[in-house]
Computed example of a mutant assay.
Amino acid sequence: MAIRRHRERHLVQRIGWLRAAVLGANDGILSTASLIVGVAAANADRTTVLLTGISGLAAGALSMAAGEYVSVSSQADTERADIARETAELSDEPEAERQELAAIYRQRGLDHDLSLQVADQLMAHDALGAHLRDELGISEDLTARPVQAALASAASFATGAIVPVLMTLLFGGRSLVVAVMAVTLVLLAATGAIGARAGGASQMRGAIRVVFWGALAMAVTAAIGHLFGTQV
């Protein structure tokens, strides 16, 4: 009788790309919308507002990609250094590493003899993998992927930012300010809820906290634009 394989996919497997995607989308929507709202509130013409939005989209997407790549690359460098160190220790002091792994299993509830048996079997199968996973917490699902994170950040930022940019083609003047703020708050609520659901958290809480900070940011930029636009 054939054995049916049972494969589970847990929420933690989404952390790498989910964090970058949600952060990028929220940042793209909010920063570009705030930029457009601030410039529009200063009574700038439609061409200026549109160029401002496009510039914000391009600069923000590249900035997010670069920042995410550098950040995750640093994490990857640290992981590689730990892997090299662990490889050397396994080669130079295999018994000490065996005892160290067994001690980890005893802390998790195994008795002395069983912990040594488990350590022996796991090290016989994949000594480095066992130490990376159980001693250092490095696994395939959580390993750093700089390029993936950078592309996800840039794409999600651009996807979010394109909405307020396109709205400059449909509205103008004060109506643009109101329309962009309204649509942006709806989109922020949606991305906050989606991110929370994908991460297994409360959708309502995720939406509320994003909307709050989004409304605050746009209110501040609108006030600044109105103040300086009136003075000019």
Rank of each mutant, 00 (worst) to 15 (best):
W213P: 10
A150G: 05
G195C: 03
T78M: 15
L23R: 01
G206F: 14
V37I: 10
R7Q: 14
Y105L: 05
G192A: 04
L51S: 01
R98P: 01
V147Y: 06
G16C: 02
D111G: 11
L188A: 00
I36T: 09
L35K: 07
L142K: 02
L185D: 00
L110D: 11
P164C: 02
A88I: 09
R205A: 14
I36Q: 03
A190E: 00
L176G: 00
A207Y: 12
R4T: 11
L18W: 10
L216D: 07
L170W: 04
G53S: 07
L110V: 05
T159L: 14
I29T: 10
V39T: 08
I162S: 10
H125W: 12
V118W: 13
A42T: 04
A20M: 11
A144H: 03
A81R: 15
S202E: 00
R85L: 15
T230A: 15
R197T: 01
D92L: 04
V210Y: 11
A88L: 13
P164E: 08
I208S: 04
A223C: 11
V39I: 13
T87H: 13
I54N: 01
A182L: 11
V72W: 13
Q121G: 10
V22G: 01
S71G: 10
R106A: 09
V186R: 05
I83H: 11
S139L: 00
G192H: 03
A217G: 12
E135G: 03
L187E: 01
L51Q: 08
Q107M: 11
S175E: 13
A76G: 14
F228G: 14
D45Q: 10
V22D: 00
A76H: 15
Q231L: 15
A223N: 08
F228C: 10
A44D: 02
A102V: 02
V180Y: 07
A58Q: 06
N43C: 03
A33S: 15
A40D: 02
M123G: 07
E93L: 14
R174F: 07
T78F: 15
T184L: 05
R145W: 06
G28F: 08
L128K: 13
A154R: 03
S63C: 08
H6R: 12
E135I: 03
R5H: 12
A40G: 00
A127H: 11
R9V: 14
T47S: 06
S34K: 06
P164I: 05
S63K: 12
V177Q: 00
A58D: 08
L11F: 13
S115K: 11
G200Y: 03
A196N: 01
Q117K: 14
A25G: 06
M1W: 10
M1C: 13
A179C: 07
T168K: 03
P146T: 07
V211M: 14
Q117A: 11
G137P: 01
Q13Y: 10
A217Y: 04
P146L: 11
V180E: 06
V118G: 14
R197E: 02
L136T: 02
G160S: 09
M181H: 00
P146V: 09
R197F: 05
A103S: 09
I208H: 02
G172W: 07
A149H: 06
V183D: 00
T184C: 04
L11M: 06
L170C: 02
R145G: 02
A84V: 15
G56D: 05
W213F: 14
D113Y: 13
I29H: 02
G67L: 14
Q148N: 11
S139R: 03
A65Y: 09
A59V: 10
V163M: 02
